[in-house]
Deep mutational scan, measured.
Amino acid sequence: NITNLCPFDEVFNATRFASVYAWNRKRISNCVADYSVLYNLAPFFTFKCYGVSPTKLNDLCFTNVYADSFVIRGDEVRQIAPGQTGNIADYNYKLPDDFTGCVIAWNSNKLDSKVSGNYNYLYRLFRKSNLKPFERDISTEIYQAGNKPCNGVAGFNCYFPLRSYSFRPTYGVGHQPYRVVVLSFELLHAPATVCGPKKST
């Protein structure tokens, strides 16, 4: 009989979030998941669920729940959905087409922007091929755009693959930082360890 609440607040209220290319994953298990708490945590810009209804979450049980978190800019949030393409979905964080879970995003301009520009958040701009779903690539190998090998040196047709967002508070919403948490629900042929409040007794 599990009584402890799932530590969603640790994920959502973390002081620092990860850069999207090096997104963070927390496995959540053996706890009571009260998803209604999430609705009250922040004024969400996005709370979209796929393959599951957000209002039914509190009635369900899962084997595992994974919470992935990272920062992107406002106009990239739409890429965090099944079947999307674009720089983020292709080279940084890719959801599977049959994704079961929820994408939660909110504006973090007050936390993640600086007047002089916050350069701490990076994204991958160049990659030889698209990522597979939930693949994480943290390599910093020089990207070869031409025929000549780069031998690890940046220059003509040889690019450092990561680029930094420079978040400034005066930017338009599309270029402001957004914190994203992706909850993916895993149903294996194994005992369910993460249940809503109704199912945990």
Results as ranks from 00 to 15, higher is better:
residue 102 C to P: 02
residue 160 F to E: 14
residue 173 V to P: 07
residue 108 S to T: 13
residue 183 L to I: 10
residue 93 Y to M: 02
residue 176 Q to I: 01
residue 179 R to W: 00
residue 53 S to V: 08
residue 180 V to K: 01
residue 156 F to E: 05
residue 44 F to W: 14
residue 72 I to D: 00
residue 94 K to H: 09
residue 158 C to K: 02
residue 76 E to C: 03
residue 87 N to I: 15
residue 4 N to H: 13
residue 32 V to N: 09
residue 53 S to T: 12
residue 20 V to R: 01
residue 162 L to E: 00
residue 117 G to L: 03
residue 77 V to R: 10
residue 3 T to H: 11
residue 49 C to I: 03
residue 173 V to N: 10
residue 65 V to M: 14
residue 189 H to E: 15
residue 140 T to I: 09
residue 161 P to A: 06
residue 16 R to I: 14
residue 74 G to S: 03
residue 193 T to P: 12
residue 117 G to W: 04
residue 72 I to P: 01
residue 13 N to V: 06
residue 191 P to T: 12
residue 94 K to I: 02
residue 119 Y to N: 14
residue 168 R to D: 00
residue 90 D to N: 15
residue 138 I to K: 10
residue 17 F to D: 02
residue 104 I to C: 09
residue 172 G to H: 00
residue 69 S to A: 07
residue 88 I to Q: 02
residue 192 A to C: 11
residue 109 N to G: 05
residue 7 P to H: 12
residue 21 Y to M: 05
residue 86 G to D: 01
residue 154 A to T: 15
residue 121 Y to W: 04
residue 129 S to F: 09
residue 172 G to M: 00
residue 72 I to Y: 01
residue 157 N to R: 03
residue 127 R to H: 05
residue 147 N to F: 06
residue 150 C to H: 01
residue 43 P to H: 11
residue 19 S to P: 07
residue 179 R to M: 00
residue 25 R to M: 02
residue 153 V to K: 15
residue 59 D to Q: 14
residue 61 C to S: 07
residue 55 T to H: 14
residue 27 R to F: 10
residue 178 Y to D: 01
residue 194 V to Q: 12
residue 96 P to R: 05
residue 96 P to L: 03
residue 47 F to P: 08
residue 135 E to I: 05
residue 85 T to L: 07
residue 25 R to Y: 03
residue 192 A to N: 13
residue 102 C to R: 04
residue 60 L to R: 10
residue 17 F to I: 06
residue 34 D to S: 09
residue 113 S to Q: 01
residue 2 I to H: 13
residue 177 P to G: 01
residue 192 A to V: 13
residue 177 P to M: 01
residue 85 T to C: 09
residue 169 P to C: 03
residue 192 A to S: 14
residue 124 R to L: 00
residue 161 P to F: 04
residue 54 P to S: 14
residue 84 Q to A: 15
residue 27 R to H: 13
residue 12 F to K: 05
residue 82 P to K: 04
residue 186 E to K: 12
residue 178 Y to Q: 06
residue 155 G to H: 06
residue 20 V to K: 00
